[in-house]
Nucleic acid binder design. Structure first.
Lengths: 260, 260
DNA sequence: CTTGACCTTGACGCGAGGTCAACCCCTCAT
DNA sequence: ATGAGGGGTTGACCTCGCGTCAAGGTCAAG
């Protein structure tokens, strides 16, 4: 005959846990000796070990209670489910190991692979780190709001960034982003931009596909907003562009002539 | 700028969880818009994903809070500990899978391997199942109270059980265990027992080692108690043995002569 | 103007015990 | 016989990471 602490020790649990199982009706209350102490037999040892085996496998005690009185078929089915859950938990922990290991470094946390590759390409092209950080934050916001468009967008950006003319403009804009709003060099910059757009327009007329037209309005609005927020000078540039007959930032278009 | 549900979705968590992190000081409260709604930037996305990465790895939120503001060395050390814990949890789940799989069948739950082997040998020798169950329960109690002695005891029992004389006595006792306490066949049985002891005694004098003498008193008391509890007729047998000048059950000895 | 989706704070609930508190019981040494 | 120590007993509150109301305020669309 065992005392409660001996029973508990035989299954490697605490006395408190055994009493908890009694309170929950998982383990039947044994008879008491003359002084009111609980006294256990071998069957209690077996039962307690069964409880712990299931509980250690992550089965909730309420489910353990059902299982202890289940028939063989139901029990076998339950064992199958438990095993499946354990395998899943093992898989999740393996994935967690990978993610935690990547935690120390980089952009991978909040961005998909292709966005990370795009940012890396910007670094290769010599874009200043500050500009890359702004760009990264912008893409994080886009990814948060419209993750389903990210892969198309990144494909587009990676194509654009390989065009030397676009890269040249990019560098001009990066440089300009630090200028004050009333910097005298701004009008000349905008003139160069407009000339470039008009050149592109002609090229497009020659039959080159205009990839941007596939972007939906909501996405364009988001991209515009994000970049206007991120780059202080962007609003001023937009004003100057509109004065020259163009509007939009992501989806650049000629304004309708003002006389209409 | 993101609303709380957009932020939450970007990290795959619930809105409630994000608010919980604010309340715990894990994620700084962002600024509010005109209507009092929270508005988040890209940094919040990154931070939230960091929190979730750690939390998904099983790090308590209080620890996450420390880690987010820890220096690189402390952080790297913590990552090491987290990875170690994850590996341990994977190992535990693998072991749980094995134990759960064994749950459906048998004695292995509450007994060590050698005790299971001993019970299997009893079955091979044709011992009735009822007697084996009693014996199993007795050994479970012994294992619960003195697990450190089990391997020696089982070695001893396995040796004994290979001695045909012992096996013969064993069968007689098994049979007798079902008799009423006043069965007329009992005295003859005890006579046979005593004759066997005396024979053993002579054999021992011849130089055979007496293994039992290495058992300590506490263990002998436990074994006696367990078997006297388990087999109703054992007490009566003990009385009869003592009338013939022997005492003890596990550690059988001649009584001192009554005239002293 | 209403509906329905979103946001706010605050409070309680759960699951598996841990951790007191306050008391009883038994044994052993003084 | 007396106290100390190491069992046992019940009961009540604490923990953690949110889920789930409750009781509203806000916003865009029909």
């Amino acid at each position: 005959m065992l005392t409660i602490s001996q029973l508990a020790a035989s299954a490697g649990v605490t006395v408190r846990a055994v009493r908890h199982y009694h309170a929950k009706g998982l383990l039947p209350e044994p008879r008491r000796d003359a002084s009111g102490y609980r006294r256990y037999d071998a069957a209690a040892v077996v039962e307690l070990i069964r409880i712990r085996t299931l509980a250690d496998a992550g089965v909730p005690l309420s489910r353990v209670q059902e299982l202890l009185s289940a028939d063989d078929d139901a029990f076998a089915a339950a064992i199958g489910e438990i095993d499946e859950r354990l395998r899943r938990e093992i898989r999740e922990r393996r994935e967690a190991r990978v993610r935690v290991a990547r935690l120390a470094a980089g952009d991978h946390l909040a961005l998909p692979d292709d966005a990370v590759a795009y940012l890396r390409r910007l670094r290769e092209l010599g874009v200043p780190e500050l500009a890359i950080e702004m760009e990264r934050d912008a893409w994080i916001l886009v990814a948060a709001q419209m993750p389903e468009h990210m892969s198309d967008l990144m494909a587009l950006k990676r194509t654009q960034i390989e065009d030397p003319a676009v890269v040249a403009m990019y560098f001009e804009l990066v440089e300009a982003s630090a200028w004050p709003l009333d910097d005298p060099r701004l009008p000349a910059l905008v003139d160069r931009l407009v000339r470039m757009f008009e050149h592109e327009e002609h090229a497009t007329d020659d039959g080159r596909p205009t990839v941007e037209l596939t972007l939906d309005d909501e996405l364009v609005a988001l991209l515009d907003e994000v970049f206007l927020e991120a780059v202080p000078i962007a609003r001023r540039l937009l004003q100057l562009l509109e004065a020259r007959g163009w509007t939009g930032w992501t989806d650049l278009r000629r304004l309708p002539p003002p006389d209409r």
